[in-house]
Amino acid sequence: MGKSHPWNLNLGRHPSPDEVSFDLERTLSSVVALQTRVPDDAFTAPILGTEREGQGVVISNDGLVLTIGYLVTEAEDIWLIDNHGGAHAAHVVGYDQETGFGLVQALGILNLPAMPLSTSASISAGDSLIVAGQGGREAAINTQIISVREFAGSWEYVLDSAIFTVPAHPRWSGAAVIDQAGHLVGIGSLYIQQAAGDDDEIDGNMIVPIDLLKPILDEIIEYGGRRRAARPWLGMTTAEAENHLVVAGIAEGGPAMRAGVEPGDMVLGVDGEEISGLSTLFRKIWSLGDAGVTVPLTLHRDSQIVSVTIESGARADYLKKPRVN
């Protein structure tokens, strides 16, 4: 967004038509609520639950909806709810593990406008955005970017330039993030208490930038995901605590569990290299090769140094595949 003509919104308030240069009602009508049901025996059910709710954004005239992927991973039933209360069945098109984006396709005609995709590379701290859930103006709030920075998630996930907005939207999962042209600049992913990236607790949302979708959109539509080999996945949730990397959880039946990694283990190194920081840990693992590569870890457990070798996997291989309708 250009800096010579700043877009000044009333922060934290619902957007008003006189604050924007586009048709606000039409733009917000592209946002739908999304309800999914996941089988009880799904791999992600113990963590994410079997009934999930969030938002999605219509991005094509044939009813393709972009959302955040954890809402639709392993989903067998999906419903889209528009601003008039209309319910529309949909099915999963695909999910990208690396970005976290998910795509679903309405099974019937939505009669909703598609929101154009913006460019997220040019935005920066201080820019105004609208974060919107389904429900029109009352479900949208004026926000501001507080930081654009690297984000590492404990579930083996890294974004180079995640967008952080304040104040936090109460229905952030899959929410539309809209720029001053009325175009989609990102998708809501998380509620974050340290949105500024420092020690101050400032409630905000982490947004996945839309530019990450563009190179992979056609692949997800045609193949359900990226065609290239998957990154190595360990099935290990890792947390940073007092400058240490601690294993906080293990996926049942996953590679780390089979190799003998235990919750509470402290990760000291990967492939003989000392590691500090979540993003460094994950990037080092991914640098070893594709899914299936062996990953040597050095751990600290019960006052002892423990070496384990994990035969990594592809996370998608553990998930139920989308059901074709």
Rank of each mutant, 00 (worst) to 15 (best):
D302C: 06
E51Q: 15
S124N: 08
P39Y: 08
L278F: 02
Y223K: 13
V306L: 09
S303Q: 15
V166H: 10
P113Q: 12
P255T: 11
H244A: 14
D96R: 12
A248R: 12
S303N: 15
Q193L: 12
E201I: 11
I47E: 14
A314H: 02
E262T: 11
N10C: 09
I68T: 13
A259M: 11
E219W: 01
A75P: 04
I146C: 12
P296L: 01
I305F: 05
A291W: 02
L234A: 08
D23F: 03
E222V: 11
Y157E: 02
K3N: 11
R171E: 09
I146R: 01
D77R: 15
I250F: 06
R171K: 09
G253E: 13
L103V: 10
Q105A: 03
A316Q: 09
Q144L: 03
G49A: 10
S189R: 13
I123K: 02
G133N: 11
Q35D: 11
G86F: 04
G292A: 08
S21T: 13
A229D: 12
H244Y: 04
G264N: 04
L71N: 01
E222C: 05
V247L: 10
L319R: 07
L129E: 01
A106Y: 03
G272E: 05
P46G: 13
M115K: 03
R26M: 12
G54T: 14
I68R: 01
N325R: 11
L212S: 06
E274L: 14
K320H: 14
G63W: 01
I163A: 01
A125P: 04
P46I: 14
G100F: 10
L213I: 07
T298Y: 00
T73Y: 02
L234W: 00
G235W: 01
H91F: 06
S120P: 03
I47R: 13
G260W: 05
T99H: 06
K214S: 15
V270H: 00
L71D: 03
R228C: 07
E222I: 11
G54I: 14
H183F: 07
W155G: 00
G260T: 09
S173Q: 14
A87E: 14
P296E: 04
D160Q: 10
S128Q: 08
G126Y: 07
A241E: 08
P15C: 08
L117Q: 10
R52M: 10
V158A: 01
A162K: 00
I310D: 03
P255Y: 09
G188R: 13
A45D: 03
Y191A: 15
G249W: 05
G49P: 05
I187N: 04
W155D: 12
T99R: 02
R13M: 14
G153Y: 00
A251N: 07
D265I: 06
S16G: 04
S30N: 06
A45V: 08
T309A: 10
A196M: 08
A241S: 08
W79Q: 14
V306K: 07
G225L: 09
W155C: 03
I250K: 04
V92S: 05
G225W: 01
R52N: 13
L28R: 08
G94Y: 04
I216L: 07
L117P: 05
S21R: 08
E51S: 15
I130M: 05
Q55W: 02
A259F: 10
T99L: 06
D82E: 10
G249L: 04
L107G: 14
V32T: 09
S161N: 12
I130L: 09
T99C: 07
W7Y: 11
